[in-house]
Nucleic acid binder design. Sequence first.
DNA 1: GGTGTATTATTGAGTGCACAAGCTATGGTA
DNA 2: TACCATAGCTTGTGCACTCAATAATACACC
Lengths: 153, 153
Amino acid sequence: MSAQATADAEIPAAVRAWTRLLRAHATTTRLLNAELQAQHGLTINDYEALQVLSCAEDHRLKRVELARRLVLTPSGVTRLLEGLERAGLVERTSCPTDLRVAYAQLTDAGLAKLREVSCGHEGSVRALFEEHLSPAELEQLVEVLGKVPGGGD
Amino acid sequence: MSAQATADAEIPAAVRAWTRLLRAHATTTRLLNAELQAQHGLTINDYEALQVLSCAEDHRLKRVELARRLVLTPSGVTRLLEGLERAGLVERTSCPTDLRVAYAQLTDAGLAKLREVSCGHEGSVRALFEEHLSPAELEQLVEVLGKVPGGGD
DNA sequence: GGTGTATTATTGAGTGCACAAGCTATGGTA
DNA sequence: TACCATAGCTTGTGCACTCAATAATACACC
């Protein structure tokens, strides 16, 4: 009955959702990042960038658009792509009609790398999430996360 | 009907949940962190640390335990507490029965700061989440996030 | 055509975190 | 008592990201 016994029932659902989102994110990213890094030398954002590019038309995207999709700042994208370009997975392409834009273009090596990595990585993601959530719960999670700011596509 | 037209229906729910978790976290964190920083000079983890300590018995916790709750490494906690100690919000306390442990002890100033900040911050969290999610959806979110690794209490 | 504003991208500086290595203290075992 | 494995914590190093400032191009407007 001390000071810390207050609350649990009073904490707004939004706040509980927020802290759980924080903790769940921290835990899952730590696990998946470590694995991705150890097995393939990629960070989560490296992987996500390759993935997003592979879904884009002609496997390329304006850097600003990539930033928007990955929820990074433009400067974050510049640094991210530095690494991927050094590894030969992505290359810069210029836009003929607008000299400001530099496309991030997935290379063949990048696509190959993605195919090599994605199966195992998706397996890890599924193992992590499907271990404790039923298919119905996963669908719910997808659904409600889609309504959280930034969670939609 | 191009290469990128594959998939949407085929992507496993676990993977869609994972990417939405990533994006939602990045977006909400960015917003809330910027606000907390601008208005009170705290990071999200600063706030969370104060919050967790305030709920602990005698307002103090072993650093290792704090690390576990915040999903940080011990070294991360050391650096986090450096800042909070410098600001006078937390102080080190030693354990009489085990000289290895150094408690993180919330100071009066820390408690005051937390009370000063929490109302506004909770308001921001609620505004952000309640804007697009109904009470029922929020409860669902709490429920299913609780089953994601790290999301439980 | 020239000017002003918006857009795209990069760079420099600073921050927050992880990993690995190292220290001290504890507790079991012989 | 001596020893050794383990626990708690800190430090050195490195990485990923942000913010603020900067440069170059595009485009609307007069």
